[in-house]
Nucleic acid binder design. Sequence first.
DNA 1: TGCCAGGCCGGGT
DNA 2: ACCCGGCATGGC
Length: 223
Amino acid sequence: MQQLIESPLSPITQQLMDIYNTLYQHFGPQHWWPGETPFEITVGAILTQNTAWRNVEKAILNLKRAGLLAPEALYRLPLPYLATLIRPAGFFNLKAKRLKNFLEFLFKEYEGDLDRMFKEDTNTLREKLLKVRGIGPETADSILLYAGGKPTFVVDAYTRRILSRHNLISEEADYEEIRSFFMDHLPEDAGLFNEYHALLVALGKTYCRPKPLCEKCVLKDLF
DNA sequence: TGCCAGGCCGGGT
DNA sequence: ACCCGGCATGGC
């Protein structure tokens, strides 16, 4: 029988929202993803793998200045030249290949059109992106959420560190487990997921580096 | 000066 | 199913 009264929020949901509200009050809106178009965001998502964002910005600027930050242009561009342009992002040979792998996928499956790609069912698209060499779960979710506006939660090193240090997940929880932890306990809202992940990164950069500064962390009063 | 950054892959147990 | 080395530049 259907419930006639609203069920109270679960303790975990409440806790996750407390964390969110505290972070939002402290850091304010993060305006993610820092990129102007879905394609720029997608390229950035691949380039930023284990790399400081400021280095990615240089690489993206190189592509922009060369007029090459578009699917067709990058698809045609010879691999060695692409590698040179994205050099500041580090792992440039590897990432040039990964960008090419994605473009190959985009053109074979969606005629090089990101809008077409995002018309695909979200879970189906996520599985397909994960099959592209060089796109793992974080990159796939970043593309889906920040370039496509799809409600999927992005998990990164900061997310894992922050949650495990506060004993919300076990140390050895894997990616899918952590992602589900958020998605099972929060409303399916791309705007919320967008801001939440960005805020966790803001917190992580400030207080949750490998050397923790927990005594200064804005979350300390919640635990 | 070394450590770290918004991961992921491939080969070895 | 894990574990680990490799990939590379630039800032603090």
